[in-house]
């Protein structure tokens, strides 16, 4: 009787006051972002588009490495595949470009299944290098396809470009909203995944594979699902990237530094294993890149050094540090125990 009294004084909560405040702020930021194309300049628009796709890529890498324990350094495989699928669908199958962006993601997800079945044979760090080999195979493979421009690549034909929108500003606005949608959707997806029961199995797997196995979590299926989902979304982002760039080549499409290294640094600096981390990391990435714009590849060196120091000295990243210090949880995915009288 007594113990029952005690348990009734606690309840499991996930939302906190800050998270509710954050929801309001998020909504305001979203409204502001929606209004951007109506007043901002082209350069700003372009930067926000880029911000949106880096943020989406970071969320997807974080879902893999931070939650499922699958450290991939071959995500450029799916960015490049997505880009190439867009070109194939738009040029050879007359699919409307924006529809092709999303359809590309679906095809990339299909490609990800045999890829996963191969690289899943490797564990840990060897898995990471294995994903890289696969990305190289895709890059070298597309370089051999002469109808897609071979090693030097090709541009999106003008007729297809006009299909996105008649004028340049209209096109940019459409791409902007697509990018915004993808970014919001990828955050939403990760948030939803982690709050669902799959989120629990994911965390269980990351913390102890052996234990979750004995508790009946189907590790292989869960990992496969996460890998395929994140590949699909990464593919959508890739398609969008090359829809904006209007030109694709194997070296640009399957670029390790642009699509994986930068993304890993973003997540590590921002805070791995959190939804907020990639957002903070992307902000820091854009600030660093802006400040060091005149110094060539120096920003990659600085970014790398910051990430390495971070990994050694503060592996939980900027967000991990902040949330611990101020007990902040903008996207509450953890179940927290609270005493009843602490609740309003």
């Amino acid at each position: 009787m007594n113990t029952q009294m005690k348990t009734e004084q606690f309840s499991v909560v996930r939302n906190t006051t800050t998270s509710r405040g954050a929801a309001v702020v998020t909504a305001m930021i979203l409204i502001a972002l929606i209004s951007v194309p109506f007043w901002a300049g082209r350069a700003d628009l372009r930067m926000i588009i880029e911000f949106a796709y880096y943020l989406s890529l970071a969320q997807m890498w974080n879902l893999l490495a931070g939650y499922a324990g699958l450290v991939s350094i071959g995500q450029q495989a799916f960015v490049g595949l997505g880009g190439y699928m867009l070109f194939v669908l738009a040029i050879y199958f007359n699919v409307p470009p924006i529809m092709a962006v999303f359809l590309s993601g679906l095809i990339v997800a299909l490609f990800a299944i045999p890829t996963a079945l191969t690289v899943f044979r490797l564990r840990g760090a060897y898995f990471a290098i294995g994903t890289w080999v696969v990305a190289e195979v895709y890059r070298l493979g597309f370089a051999q396809v002469t109808t897609l421009g071979g090693g030097s690549g090709q541009s999106l034909p003008a007729s297809i470009v006009r299909e996105i929108g008649s004028g340049r500003s209209e096109r940019e606005m459409i791409i902007y909203f697509t990018a915004l949608f993808i970014a919001v959707a990828s955050i939403g997806l990760v948030y939803w995944l982690l709050r669902s029961k799959h989120g629990l199995s994911l965390t269980a797997i990351r913390d102890s594979e052996a234990a979750s196995d004995s508790l009946g979590v189907d590790i292989f299926k869960t990992k496969l699902a996460v890998y395929v989902i994140s590949a699909g979304i990464t593919g959508v982002v890739g398609a969008l990237i090359f829809l904006q760039k209007l030109r694709i080549s194997p070296d640009a499409a399957f670029n390790l530094q642009d699509w994986t290294a930068a993304v890993i640094f973003i997540v590590v600096i921002g805070g791995i294993g959190t939804i907020e981390g990639p957002i903070i990391g992307t902000l820091i990435y854009f600030i660093l890149r802006g400040v060091l714009a005149d110094y060539g590849s120096v920003y990659m060196i600085v970014l790398g050094v910051v990430a390495v120091v971070m990994m050694l000295k503060a592996p939980q990243g900027v967000w991990g540090f902040l949330s611990k210090k101020y007990d902040l949880h903008l996207f509450p995915v953890h179940r927290r125990l609270k005493a009843k009288d602490e609740l309003e």
Binding site: I73, A125, M311, L312
Partner: peptide, 11 residues
Amino acid sequence: ILPPLLVTFGM
């Protein structure tokens, strides 16, 4: 495995 992997990747 994350720290050695990411530190050497950064390097």
